[in-house]
């Protein structure tokens, strides 16, 4: 089954990677082209790169503000979810209590809720509370999907921490809570970090709530902002491509830096159970 990979294998690999990465390359290429070139050629290179599209992305639309909004909303969402989820996940992974299966079933079930089924009451609630077009107004619905996700991932990671260490701490007289923050928390840090990345990406990528709740241009997030680049007669593809690159690059950097962690997080959530 596992021979040394040969020519055929690498051909396949290259085709596969091209399939995945070509759209990104072409979008990047478009982002450094002049509008005239975008509409006149299908070449896979450009001889006259320009940064005009990037300048326009930030000036035609308040793209910097969109980035800031996304960053604040995703950051706060991640922080809150991680705090609450780590307590819950610790209890699930380590402590004995009745109703644990029910809790996990509810968490799993809620993580699969279609967002469309909860959007109308949340919309009415946030409107009545005057929380539309605020950061916290987006954080609230984001918690609904990020908290179950975080509980699910974290309880997997917490299970993998050797139980004996905690027992030792308890024998030395630590309460369960002390055992949590003195022994388990430092060991759990990598898992917490991975979960934070996954939750952050999930919140960063959210569109439906952001589009519906924050209609004030100053309060839009990047995902909504990128759909706002429209002109009357022709679509400004250069600006859109530049915006897409700006949104994608931080994600690519994150993926390159933390790929091992992200993969272990994703697969432990789905494969190991």
């Amino acid at each position: 089954m596992k021979k040394n990979p040969g020519f055929g294998f690498y051909t396949f690999l290259v085709v596969f990677l091209l399939f995945i990465l070509f759209p990104f390359y072409y979008i990047f290429l478009t982002s450094i082209r002049t509008p005239l070139e975008i509409f006149s050629t299908f070449n896979l290179y450009t001889l006259s790169p320009t940064i005009q599209n990037y300048i326009r992305a930030f000036t035609v639309r308040p793209f910097g503000r969109y980035l800031y909004n996304s960053f604040v909303v995703s950051g706060v969402t991640t922080f809150i979810s991680i705090v609450f989820a780590s307590f819950t996940a610790y209890a699930v992974a380590r402590l004995k209590f009745k109703g644990k299966s029910l809790l996990l079933a509810v968490v799993l079930g809620v993580s699969m809720f279609p967002q469309i089924a909860i959007i109308s009451p949340i919309y009415i609630f946030l409107r009545d509370m005057g929380l539309r077009n605020t950061h916290i107004g987006l954080v609230i619905p984001y918690i609904t999907f990020s908290l179950p996700l975080a509980i699910w991932y974290l309880s997997t990671f917490f299970k993998e921490i050797p139980f004996s260490l905690e027992e030792a701490a308890k024998i030395d007289g630590a309460s369960p809570f002390q055992a949590f923050y003195k022994v388990i928390a430092p060991l759990a840090a990598p898992g917490v970090f991975t979960t934070a990345i996954l939750v952050f990406i999930g919140a960063w990528n959210e569109y439906l709530f952001a589009f519906t709740l924050n209609t004030d241009d100053r309060m839009r997030t990047v995902t909504v902002g990128i759909t706002m680049f429209n002109a009357q007669y022709s679509i400004p593809w250069g600006d859109i491509a530049a915006a897409a690159v700006i949104v994608t690059v931080p994600l690519i950097v994150m993926v390159l830096l933390f790929q091992k962690r992200i993969v272990s997080g994703l697969t432990s959530g789905a494969v190991k159970g």
Binding site: F87, F97, K98, T144
Partner: peptide, 30 residues
């Protein structure tokens, strides 16, 4: 044992509250 279960409920409680308020309630309300 009892103490352990109590701690567990305390740790679980905030998340349960959030999930009930922000996910189950909206579905029922829908």
């Amino acid at each position: 044992r009892k103490h352990e279960a109590l701690t567990a409920y305390l740790m679980v409680f905030p998340s349960i509250l959030i999930i009930l308020a922000m996910a189950l309630w909206p579905v029922i309300s829908s």
